[in-house]
Design a protein around this nucleic acid. Sequence first.
DNA 1: AAGCTGTCCTGAAAGC
DNA 2: TGCTTTCAGGACAGCT
Length: 273
Amino acid sequence: MPELPEVEVTRLGVQSKFAGQRLSAVQVRQPRLRKPVPTDALTRLAGEVLRGTSRRSKYLLLQFDSAQVMVHLGMSGALRVVPSDSAWQLHEHVQLSFGDLALRLHDPRRFGSIDCIAAHEDLNAHASIRGLGVEPLTPQFTPATLYRASRGRQQNCKSFLLAGQAVVGVGNIYASESLFRAAIRPGRAAGRLSLQDCERLHQAIVEVLSEAVAAGGSSLRDFSGVGGELGHFQTRAFVYDREGQPCRRCATPIRRQVHGQRSSFVCFTCQPR
DNA sequence: AAGCTGTCCTGAAAGC
DNA sequence: TGCTTTCAGGACAGCT
């Protein structure tokens, strides 16, 4: 399931394959994703050059002169590079062609989305971007970010991280992994974190996300890079999806808990409170 | 206002 | 064996 590292790995692939190239055609085979695909607005971009790529939280941004295309991979989405004239495979919904090669969105569960934001619109005012917390892999993210944002919160730490109001891009896998490395139980109230806890958690989040980007992301079910290459961070996970298996640090069986209707994985020995 | 719950969707796994 | 049910998850609307 794509979280920040998977989106970043995808972005790097798109950037290296297609930056500077001209968008020659747009095809929408299945417009019913999480939100309706803006087929007309996308089609009008044909003929423009892909100037560059960026990312905000888990949104991948493709910059053209008159607009930027905002892609979210949902939980099963991936962008693939394919020959422009190749036959459509099951669950491939949208194609952006750049001459002979094209980028195709493959998303079995269709939780992904594609939006088109005109150049004159302020990205930060967009409904999906407004209200998001700081980017974790920037200097703006500090222990104080977490400490301040968590004051007065009754919510558990796991849901607090997933909510994205303090820091963005940390999804279910990396939240469990970060809390393990910071020795904090996911069920603890966020408001009860000490500054020292926030220092460890900050460091853990930065490390986990950076390592995951370097590992090509986590390929648990559907994710792959644009060339189909699989990430391998999941083989290094200490707790995620390891219920009943021995903790890699102390051999205590990993337990599964549910917070906010999402699975959390925890070692009760390494995460004492 | 913060923080729950339900919804979207499909494939895999579990249950019968 | 084969059908049915359950579960997983990110974002967000709609509640309380």
